[in-house]
Every structure is written in structure tokens, then in C-alpha cells.
Write a protein that binds this DNA or RNA. Sequence first.
DNA 1: AACTTACTTTAGAAAGC
DNA 2: GCTTTAAAAAGTAAGTT
Lengths: 285, 187
Amino acid sequence: MVTDNSSGEMFCGNCGFVVSERIEELGPEWRAFSKEEHEDRSRAGIPTSLAMHDMGLATIIGPVDKDASGKPLSASMKSTIERLRTWDSRSQVHEPVDRNFRQAFSELDRLKDKLAVGDAVIEKAAYVYRKALEKGLVRGRSISALVAAALYAACRDTETPRTLKDIANASNIKKKDVARCYRLLIRELDLKMPVVDPVKCVARIASKAGLSEKTKRKALEILKKAEEGKISAGKDPMGLAAAALYVACVMNGENKTQKDVAEAAGVTEVTIRNRYKGLKTHLRL
Amino acid sequence: MPQTKPIVSIENVVASATVNQTVNLNLITQIFPDVEYHPDQFPGLVFRLRSPKTATLIFSSGKMVCTGAKSEKMAIQAVKNVVLKLKKGGIPLEHEPQIEIQNIVASASLGGKIHLELAARVLPRSMYEPEQFPGLIHRMLDPKTVILLFASGKLVCTGAKKESEVYRAVGNLHTLLEEKNLMIYEG
DNA sequence: AACTTACTTTAGAAAGC
DNA sequence: GCTTTAAAAAGTAAGTT
């Protein structure tokens, strides 16, 4: 359960349902749906359950720097919350909100299983989606695409290794569209995301390609040495991780071709070769 | 503090214009066989000039969009040239075109390499997504422009409506990057 | 492998779907 | 939102030779 101290409203961090009496006082057109309806839906199992309210994104929005479980908020959440405090929560006073929520959150629920992400990630995605809805970013746009983008944003923020391709495939939305909506969210909601860490990509590629633990460790060493210093800026983290793993395979005598690694990483062999050149020069291999 | 003055070059100027009267695009097509006009896919007729090398979109409303010029002056001259050619070709145009510069795209090179990762965290209104695009996207408020900054120290500035704004934007960014120690000067 | 060509991002206008 | 125009940056991709 998330409480926004600046407005006094409380909402479900999982499905975005606004619970506070204050909102309801504003009139029926301000409500997504009644508490009773929300509870009915919760019992039906689709959107969410109130039992999950103290998990994951449980956050107190206000001049505090800790979340509901007492852990400090990340800098990105703090800046986001700071901004949310000044928002006019009455920016979108429309009736189809109910329908919108239903569709958005059932889709999020569906994606949860397809992508096997945790509840905390889903809650964050719901949180981001609700903010996008409040700011009117959903009008004229595909709800599915925005839900997918919100989920990608949640994965990025929690450093959950899911690529744009993963989200695009699971949601049947073009990767380009998910990316465009994701950038819209970052821009309009002033979100700050950590840059994708190639180190996080290594584990994924290694397991997909069936590489050994030692090769994985070696790749991590290589990436560490190559250190974001100069050869990584502007390069696709997947390409960097793939090249590091390929080099590690060669060093450990693990018989894997560039094609094997490339396929597991979702990049081309040419890219691995290009990154390899950089690593070779930089590490003087 | 390695003072390297940014090298800026205007790459493209977009201007809109109007001749304040409707024009017959089909007639233009008959008189100028080289124009492209496919009303089913786009309402504008494409009129290309070799000098200044530009492409001007002409609409039946008499409004136009000229792209490709390398300076404000060239963009204005290009529009005038187009109008002059239309007149010479027999298109009855009674007024001089009203021209407005809408956007200027420029490329530039700062003196050294950039610490993009750090810049993404320090610069406000910036986004750096290497999986999607190699450059950092920075939205400057004054002048209101968008700058694509690359690790090489080269950049693209777009959104400016005056050439002076381009220089101001690049200068502002350069100063900001040096202040925050985001530049790496070396061989 | 190299080459070529092409697509990703940014801004902005035009008229219409 | 899309369609069309032009242009740069650097990375990645795909098709040929």
C-alpha cells in the first residue's frame, strides 16, 4: 500500500487502485472504482490482492527517505517521489479509467508469468503506469505498449535482467514501440535509470549458451579490466558481455563458437568481433 | 583546463513558408517533370533544387517546407529560388513568400572524449541508453535544444531556430561538461 | 573479412488519415 | 500516431563479394 502524503491518497502499489476516502469525496468521476469493487476484483484474483500491499514498492510518498519496510529509497525513487509530491493528481478526470485499469493490470499480470518477474517488479511497473495514467500519457496511445514500457522501466530500475526484446516478445509489441514508450516514460515522469550493466548480461548469456562457471568468472574479470574506462561508452552492453564471454571461452579452452555466443546474446558475430578488437587492444591480449 | 574551442558546423536548416494563395500541384507536375508528387502517400509535392541543394515540399495550400540548406540564408534563398522558378514556369504567384526558420541541425566536436556514464547521472534531463542509441540525449532548456552527445566528444544539436542559439547551446554544454569534470582530455 | 546500404536517435513544419 | 524531407553523430545489422 502506497500513501501519498502530499495529497493524502492511498493506493494499491500493485494495481493502482486508489483507496483513500479523500479521492472518493471528489465524486464518482474521480474514482477508478469503489473499494467494494476493488475487493471483488481482488477476490476474483485478476488485478491484485490486498495481501500484497506491504511488499516491494511499498513506499511512503513524502519528505522521508525510507520505504515502508524501513529500507532507504534509491536515489531514483527519491527524485521520482519528490516530483510526484508536486503533481496535481487531478490531471486526468476521465471515466474510462476503470476500463483502462482493468486492461492494464490484467496485462501486467499476464506478463508477470511470461517473463517470470517478481511481484516487486510488477508493483513498480504498476506504480509507473499509474503515474503515466495520471499525467495523461496514455491518451491516444496503446495501453499494452505503455504497460510493456512500464514493465521494462521496472526491470531496469530493479536491475532485473530482461531485455527490450524479452518484453516485446512477451507482449507482442514491436521492440521499437516499447522502446519509444519507455523513453516517453523516462522523459515525462523524470525517471532516472541505471545504465544496463554488461556484468548483468554475462550470467544470462552464459546460461543460455551453457558456459562454465569459470568462463563466466573470466568474462567478469575481462569486463572489470576493460573497465568502463574507454571502450564501453556508447556500446551495447550485450555486445560487450558477449565479446568478454567469447574471449573467456578462448582463454579457458571452452569450445564455443562466436555464433554460439552471438545467438545466446542476441547480437551478430560481427559485433562480437568488433568488441573483441577493442578488448584485444585495450587489454593488450 | 585544456581550452579547445568547439568546432561547429550547420548541417541542415528547415524552413516553412507560404505564398498566401493556393497552388495547383498537378500543374507544377506538368511543367516540372522532375518533381515527385504522390498524393496517395503524401499531400506534399517534392521540389528539389541543385543549388542550394535542398528539397522543398509544396502543398496545395501554398505552404511549403524547405529542408537541406546549410544556413539560414541559404534556406531563405532556396525558398525564393523555388518561388521564382515556379513563376518562370508559368505558375501565377502574386506574393513574395513569408519565410520562417523552424529548425537547425548542427554537428560539433568538443576538445576531448566524454564520460557518458557519469554525464548521464550528472546532467539533468538527459538519457543514456546504449542498447537503444550510442549517444546521450540531453534536453537543454536555454536555448531550447536537444543535444545528442557521443563518447568521442562529437555531438549533434537540433531544435534551434537561430544559428546563434546553436553556438550558445554548444558553448553552454561545453562549459557544463568541463565544470562537472565530464570531459577527458588527452591525445 | 571488407564493402555497401540501411536503420536506430533528435527537432520541426506541412495536410490528411 | 503515421506518411515525406534532410542531415549529423556512432553503433549495430544485413546482404554481397
